[in-house]
Design a protein around this nucleic acid. Structure first.
Length: 463
RNA sequence: GCGUCGGUGGUAGAGCGGUCAAUUACAACAGACUGUAAAUCUGUCGCCUUCGGGCUACGUAGGUUCAAAUCCUACCCGACGCA
């Protein structure tokens, strides 16, 4: 089997786990560390692909559960895969649906976040467990898989590790995730341990199913398209795909040969719909806030034949960095690591310093839609009265489209008037801010100035 | 001029004798948001407060009543109808 992914470490932060590298996928290179922009339903809410490209976004992440429910993974397969369907020709990831086990399960109808403040005593009762709180939930965990009650129409669905991988193969993202159980920080140790062994069993099943589908894919591709070899990483290198993603799929010559090109007006035959590009599978480390479980999980998942790793689950804000460190000291150094669902600036510095290569987070786009924008001096809520007549730009010195063209006052007006352009412009800014921040971290690693950059940034940001 | 209906907190609009500082919505003022159930959610929203309560309020002025935004009288203002 050809490798779906190639990861090259370029430079490390001396005496730390952090590193800068290049992650090559069939749809282009990701310069790491990198922030992955979340586009759950095959769209980064409120922004177009062109806007993402102009903000130098390298990679996006969609969601298995959501796309399976709507419009359906088979439809997306028939449309030529998710890249083509959503008009994103760069590197693409899909999450497995494991997070929905949490968000639609234990956390459903409650105010539980995957990151908790240790100062919140209500979440720290050791005996507390989700087993019997009387509140109905949409996801119920079993040992074989998870029953989901659709939040859209109430229909019942059963997702197993195999099913999640099948769906993700239909979607065709470059990097996919094993089906896991993201636990709540409110679960007690006993439950965390049970969930962890389930996650490990599911990781193994995900991997087995993935390899099976990759083999089928490779065989089919070689039979159908004579004379054309299945994707080989070396081809990508020879094509000189630029690090900044280009909009035109013609860069990916092999894709066209194999019928997955994005030429306009082209119709799809079943052969053309074949998902012939190899996909990489990341296993997910869990373990909650427990050092023993985190380390155990890193050992177990890290020893399996995954192309990279996700670090998932719940943390307490205060000990997130130590938890990440425990894990990354164990995971194989030569494979990429993705810290799932983390994206506050301070957490990004922590993650990069401790050896994380990829991050994703809904934060930047969600807070943007709710009127909050990043600035170098901290977040601002543009709905605050003081911005009504503030004709300055949002973040002095920012090069994003929004900052180059609009004032705080105008943004304030859009949000007060509930004009949807507000969400778009704020999202463009926040995406630019956060992806550039991580990109700047990368450059600082390459320049040996990571800690200077970190201190300088955080001093201003959190003052 | 006569008749009818109506005037409630920033706005709209409930309430029609006590449980009313007054339902609700909007506006306003803040806060939250970390693998998206989210263009969402939460709090505050007459004045003062030692958070127990106190004070001033439902067009204006009187009156009835233990008690009035609610009933009566006059006046002012508005809408509609008839002249």
């Amino acid at each position: 089997m050809k490798k779906a992914l190639n990861f090259k470490i370029e430079k490390k932060i001396p005496n730390f786990l952090g590193r800068a590298g290049v992650l090559s996928t069939p749809h282009g290179d990701i310069l790491t560390p990198s922030f992955v922009v979340v586009g759950t339903k095959g769209t980064v809410k409120s922004v177009t692909t062109e806007q993402l490209i102009s903000d130098k976004v390298q990679v996006t992440l969609a969601n298995t559960y959501h796309l399976y429910l709507q419009p359906g993974d088979e439809l997306i397969r028939d449309a030529g895969g998710l890249h083509k369907f959503m008009n994103w020709s760069g590197p693409l990831m899909t999450d497995s649906g494991g997070f929905q086990v949490f968000s639609l399960g234990v956390a459903y109808g409650k105010e539980i976040s995957k990151v908790i403040a240790v100062t919140d005593p209500s979440l720290l009762i050791a005996e507390r467990s989700s087993v019997d709180d009387g509140i109905p939930r949409l996801a119920v965990v079993g040992n074989d898989g998870v029953s989901f009650r659709s939040h859209i129409d109430g229909s019942l669905h059963y997702i197993t590790p195999e099913k999640s991988i099948e769906i993700q193969h239909n979607l065709g993202a470059d990097i996919i995730f094993a089906f896991d159980e993201c636990t709540s920080p409110t679960e007690n140790d006993k439950y965390q341990e049970e969930a962890l062994s389930r996650t490990h069993a599911w990781a193994k099943r995900s991997l087995t199913k993935h390899k099976e589908l990759e083999n089928i894919k490779e065989n089919k591709a070689s039979q159908k398209v004579l004379g054309v070899q299945p994707f080989d990483k070396s081809e990508v290198v020879s094509l000189k795909i630029p690090a900044s993603i280009k909009a035109e799929p013609e860069d990916f010559a092999h894709s066209q040969v194999l019928g997955r090109g994005r030429t306009r007006g082209q119709t799809n035959s079943p052969e053309q719909n074949l998902q012939v590009l190899p996909q990489a599978l990341f296993g997910i480390v869990q373990g909650g806030r427990s050092e023993i479980l985190r380390k155990k999980s890193a050992e177990v998942i890290g020893s399996m034949d995954f192309d990279g790793f996700g670090i998932g689950g719940s943390f307490a804000k205060e000990d997130m960095s130590t938890a990440v460190k425990w894990v990354n000291e164990i995971l194989p150094e030569e494979k990429p690591r993705h810290l799932l669902g983390i994206g506050e600036p301070i957490d990004l510095f922590m993650g990069v310093e401790n050896g994380v290569d990829l991050f994703d987070c809904v934060g930047p786009t969600r807070i943007a839609r709710n009127g909050t924008m990043f600035t170098k001096n901290g977040k601002i809520n543009i709905l605050n009265a003081k911005f009504v007549e503030d004709f300055n730009i949002i973040d002095e010195g920012c090069e994003c489209y929004t900052c180059k063209n609009y004032t705080r006052s105008y943004m304030s007006h859009l949000f007060r008037a509930k004009e949807m352009l507000g969400a778009t412009l704020a999202s463009i800014h926040n995406i630019y801010f956060i992806t550039k921040l991580v990109s700047d971290m990368r450059n600082s690693i390459l320049n040996n100035t990571f800690h200077d950059f970190k201190n300088e940034f955080l001093n201003k940001y959190s003052k």
